[in-house]
Amino acid sequence: MVPAQFQVLVIRRPRYACRTCEDAFVQAPAPARLIEGGLPTDALVAQVLVAKYADHLPLYRQAQIFARQGVVLDRSTLADWVGRAAFLLRLVHERLLETLKRSGKLFADETTAPVLDAGRGRTKTGQLWAYARDDRSWGGSDPPGVAYVYAPDRTASRPIAHLAGFEGVLQVDGYAAYEVLAKGGAVRLAYCWSHVRRAFYELAAASPIATEALARIAALYRVEAGIRGRPADQRRAMRQERSRPVIEALEPWLREKLGLVSRKSKLADAIRYALSRWAGLNLFLDDGRVEIDSNIVERAIRPLALNRKNALFAGSDGGGQHWAVIASLIEICKLVGVEPHAYLADVITRIVEGHPQRRLDDLLPWAYPAMPALKAEA
């Protein structure tokens, strides 16, 4: 094991002058850098980004690691590098979200993002919204991806703005903000059976009705386990044959049990949660592309939770936006098996050197070759 080492790159640019000419000097231009006149190469900035957003190392810990190797860097300096890189990559992030919105099916979810409330000495609660695509379970041709978007609140106006122009199936939990998107008819909501199951699971130890509900839902998941990876039309046919009878029997059974329990009980709440979303819970039966739950986007949110646990909070709303930009690109690298350090270093260098905006698709992680070992882990 040879620990990572720092190298100092010295670039010499001699100035040449003609002895017989006045004011005639020639000097090669300095190479473009993200931090003009600064210490870091694009590769070092990429290392800081990967350590923070892929390996969940807060900047103060990175500063300690650098110090052990004889490189003294203040945390504020590292934060400045992160901010500059995120600002540079914002157009790639915007292109990523636009590309995902052209899909016919997306997942959506959100999680809290504590943000320092400047001047008040405490944090406020922002939100990181996640919009994901993953068609591998039915052999779709589009590669998986996720785009995070930071917002200072959790109002319905946020997903409406983020998903402007999207048409298709949106798979979500029971948060009412998404219902506004479906009012125009362009978006159909598919709800999550995992959330329905979760409500009954919490009550199963003391309720035979909840236990029976879990057993019936488990039958649906057994069907899903047998059709995972099959084409969409085969998945639909198997669901019609095996899952539809289970669901058609489950609805009247739930309505019957709702009349037997206290309306103020948690069990009644769990039953009403399912029945009030019944159409969206049935959508997967008629469309083989739709999943039975939204676990795909919940898995995409886990890295955000790890970063939140280690870093505690973002320094500002701008820091939350930087978080969304970098985390989106790194998470897609993980999903498709692209090495994130090499990817970020290359993209930063290409943008700094003047990569044309009309070719932003060339800078998305999907355009880079995957490493077989990383792809296998994804």
Score class of each variant (00 low, 15 high):
Ala4Tyr: 04
Ala4Gln: 05
Phe6Cys: 05
Ala17Pro: 00
Cys18Val: 08
Cys21Lys: 15
Val26Thr: 14
Gly37Glu: 13
Leu39Gln: 11
Pro40Ile: 06
Ala46Glu: 05
Ala51Pro: 01
Asp55Gly: 00
Pro58Val: 06
Gln62Asn: 07
Gln62Lys: 04
Gln62Pro: 01
Ala63Cys: 08
Gln64Ile: 00
Ala67Gln: 11
Arg68Ser: 02
Arg75Asn: 01
Arg75Asp: 13
Trp81Gln: 13
Ala86Gln: 06
Ala86Asn: 05
Leu91Lys: 06
Val92Trp: 04
Leu97Ala: 13
Leu97Lys: 10
Lys101Glu: 06
Arg102Cys: 12
Ser103Arg: 15
Ser103Gln: 15
Glu110Met: 12
Val115Phe: 07
Ala118Met: 00
Arg122Glu: 15
Gly126Glu: 08
Tyr131Val: 11
Arg133Pro: 04
Asp134Gln: 02
Asp135Ala: 14
Arg136Ala: 13
Arg158Ser: 08
Pro159Gln: 08
Ala161Tyr: 00
Ala161Thr: 12
Gly165His: 06
Gly168His: 03
Gly168Val: 10
Asp173Tyr: 11
Ala177Glu: 06
Tyr178Pro: 11
Tyr178Ser: 10
Glu179Lys: 13
Leu181Thr: 06
Lys183Pro: 02
Ala186Trp: 00
Val187Asp: 06
Leu189Arg: 05
Cys192Ala: 04
Ser194Arg: 12
Ala199Thr: 03
Leu214Ile: 10
Ala215Arg: 15
Arg216Thr: 03
Tyr221Gln: 14
Arg222Ser: 09
Glu224His: 01
Arg230Gln: 15
Gln240Leu: 14
Gln240Met: 09
Gln240Glu: 14
Glu241Trp: 10
Ser243Arg: 05
Pro245Tyr: 13
Val246Ala: 08
Val246Thr: 11
Arg255Asp: 03
Leu260Trp: 06
Lys266Met: 02
Ala274Ile: 01
Ala279Glu: 15
Asp286Phe: 02
Asp287His: 13
Gly288Lys: 02
Arg299Val: 01
Arg302Asp: 09
Lys309Met: 09
Asn310Val: 09
Phe313Lys: 09
Ala314Phe: 12
Asp317Glu: 15
Asp317Asn: 15
Gly319Val: 12
Gln321Met: 10
Ile326Pro: 03
Leu329Asp: 10
Glu331Ile: 00
Leu335Asp: 10
Leu335Cys: 04
Val336Thr: 10
Gly337Gln: 10
Gly337Leu: 11
Gly337Glu: 07
Val338Ala: 09
His341Cys: 04
Ala342Gly: 15
Asp346Cys: 14
Arg350Asn: 07
Arg350Cys: 09
Ile351Glu: 07
Ile351Asp: 08
Pro356His: 12
Arg359Thr: 07
Pro369Lys: 08
Ala373Leu: 13
Leu374Val: 04
Leu374Phe: 11
